[in-house]
């Protein structure tokens, strides 16, 4: 327990936060890299997922991609890409995007897929075009699961960005590895606690966002359930129901 006190003392020391490699810089780096990665991944995955969910084509590929991504060891991907691109930011960003895409893809797809067929037929019946069906019916109803995908992707990227410091000079992981190398347990523990705090704060914010985008009128627990469980693999399936039951 004394080590926790040491870590706290390290965190409470102002000079550890300032300067070039200080905790503040590392924290901002961590957030910037994670944001960049999730942004790129979303631009790739969300339209694709919505398309798959809307047309029903390629769903096997999506499910396969989601479960294959879980099996691939993140550290292996990080080091492999880093060896190919050299030391720098490109390696981790590419590897992290590859890791973030499946969760987002599965979330977008599962969300659109979970929309009741009857609702979509009704939208067509009142004369909506396909684009309108997607934008004004499917997307709003898909939002909770879509944000669920965003949530698990963000979580994974924030966690793996820490690991990315093994191959690149970036983020809070840098502090952790510096402490490990110098055998300074207080630095190691302090940075570990920072990462945990960051992850939990982001998790909380995204859970809140997920609750906000859940349509109030719909009580989708019953009919949305089977569709969600069509991806037992994705974290989306594991996490989303939390909001309903709690």
């Amino acid at each position: 327990m004394n080590l926790f006190l040491d870590a706290w003392r390290w965190l409470a020391t102002g000079s550890n936060w300032t300067g070039d490699g200080g905790a503040a810089t590392r924290l901002v780096e961590h957030l910037l890299v994670s944001g960049l990665v999730v942004g790129i991944a979303a631009i790739i995955a969300v339209p694709l997922g919505v398309l798959v969910g809307h047309t029903g084509r390629g769903r096997t590929a999506v499910v396969l991609a989601a479960s294959a991504a879980r099996a691939v060891p993140t550290l292996g991907l990080l080091t492999l890409v880093a060896l190919a691109t050299g030391i720098g930011l490109t390696g981790p960003v590419v590897a992290l995007v590859v890791l973030a895409v499946p969760s987002l893809l599965a979330g977008a797809y599962a969300g659109v897929e979970s929309v009741d067929r009857v609702t979509i037929d009704a939208a067509r019946a009142v004369g909506m075009t396909e684009a309108q069906v997607v934008r004004r019916v499917e997307l709003p109803l898909a939002a909770p699961l879509l944000v669920g995908g965003l949530r698990s992707a963000t979580l994974q990227v924030v966690a793996t960005s820490t690991l990315a410091a093994y191959t690149a000079d970036v983020g809070l992981g840098r502090l952790l590895f510096a402490g490990l190398k110098a055998r300074e347990y207080d630095v190691m523990l302090a940075s570990a606690l920072l990462v945990v705090a960051l992850a939990l704060v982001l998790e909380g914010l995204l859970a809140l966002l997920q609750r906000l985008v859940t349509p109030r009128t719909a009580a989708p627990a019953e009919h949305a359930r089977p569709a969600r469980n069509a991806h037992p693999s994705s974290t989306v399936a594991e996490k989303s129901p939390t909001e309903r039951t709690s």
Binding site: L176, A192, V196, T242, S246
Partner: peptide, 19 residues
């Protein structure tokens, strides 16, 4: 219980190896 395990799951692995 489910919220608890959800938070547990949210903790990145590398820091957990230290903690």
């Amino acid at each position: 219980v489910l919220v608890g395990v959800g938070l547990l799951y949210a903790i990145p692995s590398l820091p957990l190896f230290i903690i």
